[in-house]
Design a protein around this nucleic acid. Structure first.
Lengths: 253, 253
DNA sequence: GAGTGGTCTAGACCACAAA
DNA sequence: TTGTGGTCTAGACCACTCC
């Protein structure tokens, strides 16, 4: 009765080690359609029944793949409406990637404003190349800006982007506040997840000037590597944060 | 054919707003048995079939509850063996709750040693009471210790425990390295999750002396609220970390 | 009313572990 | 061989949304 896992138009690795459950293969197929732009942010996917027919698997298997992708914030499911590709709107990006909050009352979910200091083409140094899995010396664009919340300088950040992945970024006329939305609309790149490393450092002269604090004041250093749908690192971001009245929030697990 | 959700020996809140899916009710039941000690760390649960019979639901519904609990690190499932209550062994606690790593080669998964400075009974101050959801002035035990990795002082930490939850803690003769294991074995309390808040601060004189750094050196301040199976805060821990050669790891999401 | 996702069930076969 | 969890299927009913 139950059909043998025969791949069903899915790439079947029946080799000893390369086995994947059907629902994982389905998930890979669906992610492929996100990567190649078949389904763009905001669009509705076909219904579960329809996907099941197309992929020749049961609805339950499709559901398991969709549920996993929903848990990873790639999709949004709405009962009675359908399943949609997640969009990089401010509210979601803020919630998912911005972990700084006020010590006192919740900062109301305001997206911090940006004061651009400049951006320019450069060559990746050793550390940047390592973090982004590109060749040392490869062309990148470095963006420097100050993030401001409620009129107060909050952090200084440097964004390093490989120009091989974001061609023409260095020639932009301006850079919006929500860059992840720009990555999506202009280059079709979705930031799916990120790893962060945190340290405490002393403020240098430049950061002190920009943030309005004394040189030597303790700052929270955040080094973020952001990854696309396939897990490839596409952005390196280094932030120096004033945490006198703010804190970084982490949940375990 | 399908039986109406009638609670099935589960507490049924069919009131307008209080509805819960069956699998969530099953999960609540299972967690209750963890809380009341029916199933202790390391023990095997009954099989899915058996649980399904006992609770008068289908195996699939039981599975959904077990999968959710496994995702929360409350259970461990082993194919062909069974489902077991997760234990607070060093390796897991290290992986789940210790987010500091060396900047260079992985620190090999070594559990940091502890150098105890002392512990004593005290009264909760405003901030501690607020964090632990207890009355201001309620009895607590404060533990001070230095964590050491590979012979080098890594961080100074203060653990604040409500004596209402851990009676007799202040009268202990000694305190082991892995306190979460002690909470479990001595008081039957499982640390299920924790929230952390991070800041950068300047080292005070005492911390500088203990950590072997200069006063004013930037330290990473971590304030952890650890919660039991029911989400109630049971431990407050404040760590001041030297992050010259270390960093804190966070994953988004 | 038609279509969607959300829940629940029942039963099959598979991979794995232990006796 | 027996029993376990892991996967997959098929079909039912429900709650919700939109026409």
């Amino acid at each position: 009765m139950v059909e043998k896992n025969a791949g069903l138009a899915l790439q079947d690795d029946e080799t000893e080690i390369g086995f994947k459950p059907l629902y994982a293969q389905v998930k890979d197929q669906l992610i492929r359609r996100l990567v190649d732009g078949t389904w763009q942010p905001g669009m509705a996917l076909p219904s579960e029944q329809e996907l099941a027919r197309q992929l020749r698997v049961s609805q339950g298997t499709v559901r398991k793949a969709l549920d996993a992708m929903t848990a990873e914030n790639l999709l949004v499911r709405r009962q009675g409406r359908g399943t949609f590709v997640a969009e990089p709107e401010d509210a979601r990006i803020l919630f998912q990637f911005f972990r700084l909050a006020s010590d006192h009352a919740d900062s109301g979910g305001a997206f911090p404003e940006s004061r651009l200091l400049g951006w320019s083409r450069a060559s990746a140094d050793e550390a940047e190349a390592e973090a982004l899995s590109i060749a040392s010396g490869a062309p990148v664009c470095r963006v420097e800006r100050i993030r401001v919340l409620l009129g107060k300088p909050l952090l200084a950040e440097t964004i390093i982007l490989p120009l091989g992945i974001f061609p023409g970024f260095d020639a932009l006329d301006e850079i919006p506040n929500n860059v992840y939305q720009l990555y999506s609309s202009r280059w079709g790149i979705t930031i799916a997840k990120a790893d962060e490393r945190l340290k405490a450092i002393a403020a240098g002269d430049a950061d002190a000037r920009h943030l309005g604090c004394a040189p030597g004041e303790p700052l929270l250093l955040i080094r973020r590597i952001a990854r696309d749908l396939e897990g490839k690192p596409v952005e390196l971001r280094i932030s120096r944060c004033l945490t006198r009245d703010m804190h970084y929030v982490a949940n375990l697990p």
